[in-house]
Design a protein around this nucleic acid. Structure first.
Lengths: 107, 107
DNA sequence: TGCATTCATGGTAATATAGCCATGAATACA
DNA sequence: TGTATTCATGGCTATATTACCATGAATGCA
């Protein structure tokens, strides 16, 4: 590594890695509509409750979501408002990939 | 999984996962300035040439970069112009995390 | 043709990730 | 107090990821 700012890339990668899972993306999508308790997210995701809890811990540890306890329930909500632009980029890549595939088939 | 569009989240996750590595982030950063051969990227990243080659294959397989062969060299370049907005989001999360830490220390 | 350079890939080992089950901790409520 | 509900965590296994070394394929040049 010639460049000295590897720490920056590692910090970015940690956050991106937290986003790099289908279930977590789904949960973030649901949370864009407002806070949700673990039990609802568990039902939506369709995985074991312990699995969902760990996914939420990953998102929380990277600062993407925060939680609030109310009685026996725990409600999670987004901490960042920038996800929209983030996913726009991902969608652009996906669309372009489709275009490339279509072109390849048309040859 | 209650929602039927899990495929969409899986597709997104595949792309995000390709972004979720410090070395690959560094390479994308370098490629924003223009195309680079594998040998130069290898030197900048400071890993084994075979390792860098595999990283580039990951980026290529997800449609994030494309390559061009010229003699014995292979030049890689970005395929997406949207990475800026993407990283703006990541940086926003990082900055906010720092703010939270600072506030915690100030208590 | 022989040799050097560049890049990709097979093989392998170490580590990380993700899933579920079982269980523990905290709260609410009868 | 006893019981049920919600959520987090320890334990474990299976799979994926990452790294390096060694080597193969392709090209350029003497």
């Amino acid at each position: 590594m010639t460049r000295p700012n590897m720490k920056v890339y590692e910090a970015r990668a940690r956050i991106i890695k937290a986003l790099a899972h289908p279930s977590r993306l789904l949960m973030l999508d649901l949370l864009q509509e407002g806070e949700r308790c673990v039990c609802e997210l568990t039902e939506r995701v369709g995985a074991d409750q312990s699995t969902v809890s760990r996914h939420l811990a990953v998102l929380k540890n990277t600062g993407l979501v925060e939680d609030r306890k109310e009685g026996v329930m725990v409600y999670y909500r987004l901490r960042c408002k920038c996800l929209r632009g983030f996913f726009n980029c991902i969608e652009a890549v996906l669309k372009d990939n489709l275009k490339v595939q279509a072109e390849a088939l048309a040859l």
